[in-house]
Write a protein that binds this DNA or RNA. Structure first.
Length: 429
RNA sequence: GUGGUUGUGGCGAAGUGGUUAACGCACCGGAUUGUGGCUCCGGCACUCGGGGGUUCAAGUCCCCUCAAUCACCCCA
């Protein structure tokens, strides 16, 4: 072949896509129940939106963006995440003039130039929500409850909410100084990356997976000890509401989200799987982002989940998803005389709302029966010369092999009735 | 960006320098002249991810490259 798909990019084939559709439908339904509306933003934006929004020191901006120049010499970037785009759309369309907080969700592909791995791809899909214009702790809790319910509702085991507060610029400034004081004596022993982080973003050192660094940061002061009064109160209230809703969570003081815009509440959700790519969902509050990109000073909070990772754990945990029926009726026409009648019949059945398959290659009855079986057709209609001469056809019920001869003109209504009858029977069981 | 493993038909998988590249599943056809799921029989890779090299001879050795995968990093 001429070429293959680019690295880290995947086709989602029909045999797989029904799972996606099922989950997407559930997500949309759940979003509606929580009062969120869909917002579709573009796949690419001006590069500076992500640079300013996500933060220059983040890995995403530093080394993972798909940035290109268009024919007008503009620097554009394929969106690596959704929040910045929603924020931009919110400001640009002056959505702050509506009822606040605005509650939006999005679903679609994101792009990051990473080394691909299980559960990590260069084009991956996220479902995310954002609420903009509310600072109340109840909003944090509602967003976390929504995220939790997505996973819980699908039947996943060991769903765990990791919760932390990363403070606001005021308390973070104080904490940053304390943390640097703590680390300074062992600065030389930290890994290269962490030495780099020391000035630029010392809180990220707490997140370092290197064993050596991990030992050195034992006993480090935690941000929660240095939260200002407002942040502390906010955090306590979020926890209290979650308790009240019966949503369990675990405080994880090492949880520092990778994007620079986060303030106060930060959370992540995992489901059993330990180690790499275990985060199914990540989110948090971003109280300065909207203002940062030139909008009014409105706070926000949201999360995003990775569809590929969700599908992966569902599979690992053996959670069955309902597979839709692909075929109600297979029309088996035999010989040239059946051609027009077969086509017409298929069309009528489809107009009657049925899923219909047929053969186009003039195969024998045996081969057509085999095909019908593979389509998992519930009913096969057989049309040969004998039947056509008498203007009838044979209706075979594949689940029990029973056959009835009926008139061609009655076929559609007969099939509809037969199928609705067995559906009712199925429901009664 | 770093390190490890892998790459043979649609899929899984033998083959460890030497004639026609096992086998299983799937697929197609037949046994059952007009009827699926079982059984039996038959068919199905000018070719071993791509390129170059070593050799009388390479799927088998070497180099490069691409891709997958795992770990690190990071994150969804």
């Amino acid at each position: 072949m001429l070429t293959t798909k680019p690295r880290g990019i995947n086709d989602i084939l029909p045999e797989e896509v029904w799972k996606w559709q099922y989950i997407e439908n559930r997500l949309r339904d759940l979003a509606g129940r929580f009062g969120f509306q869909e917002l579709r933003m573009p796949i690419f934006e001006h590069t500076e939106l992500f640079q300013r929004g996500i933060g220059d020191t983040s890995d995403v901006v530093e080394k993972e963006m798909y940035t290109f120049t268009d024919r007008g010499d503009r620097s554009l970037t394929l969106r690596p995440e959704g929040t910045a785009g929603v924020a931009r759309a919110f400001v640009e369309n002056k959505l702050y003039s509506g009822t606040l907080p605005g509650k939006y969700y999005y679903i679609g592909p994101m792009f990051r130039y990473d080394r691909p791995q299980a559960g990590r791809y260069r084009q991956f899909n996220q479902f995310g929500v954002e609420t903009i214009g509310g600072h109340e702790p109840a909003i944090d809790s509602e967003v976390i409850a929504f995220a939790y319910e997505i996973f819980h509702g699908l039947g996943l085991e060991n769903v765990l909410v990791h919760l932390n507060s990363v403070g606001c610029p005021t308390c973070r400034k104080a904490y940053r100084a304390v943390l640097q004081d703590f680390l300074r004596p062992s600065l030389g022993q930290l890994c290269d990356t962490c030495q780099n982080r020391f000035e630029r973003n010392p809180m990220r050192i707490l997140d370092c997976k290197s064993k050596h660094c991990h030992e050195l940061i034992q006993g480090a002061p935690t941000i929660t000890q240095y939260l200002c009064e407002d942040c502390q109160k906010h955090f306590e209230q979020v926890k209290a509401i979650l308790d009240g809703m019966g949503i369990s969570f675990k405080i994880n003081q090492g949880l520092v989200r990778g994007l620079d815009y986060y303030t106060r509440t930060a959370f992540e959700i995992t489901a059993g799987k330990e180690g790499s790519q275990s985060a199914l969902c990540g989110g948090g509050r971003y109280d300065n982002l909207i203002e940062e990109i030139g909008g009014p000073a409105l706070p926000g909070i949201g999360f995003a989940l990775g569809m590929e990772r969700l599908l992966l754990v569902l599979d690992q945990q053996g959670i069955p998803l309902p597979k839709p029926d692909l075929c109600d009726v297979f029309v088996a026409g035999l010989g040239e005389n059946a051609e027009i009648i077969t086509s017409t019949l298929c069309h009528q059945l489809r107009l009657a709302g049925l899923r219909v398959q047929r053969d186009f290659q003039g195969k024998g009855l045996k081969a057509q029966m085999k095909a019908a079986d593979r389509y998992a057709a519930k009913i096969v209609l057989i049309l040969g010369d004998e039947e056509i001469n008498r203007q009838v056809l044979i209706c075979r019920q594949m689940w029990n092999g029973e056959q009835t001869t009926i008139e061609i003109k009655d076929a559609a209504s007969f099939v509809v009735n037969t199928l609705s009858a067995i559906e009712v029977e199925g429901e009664m069981k």
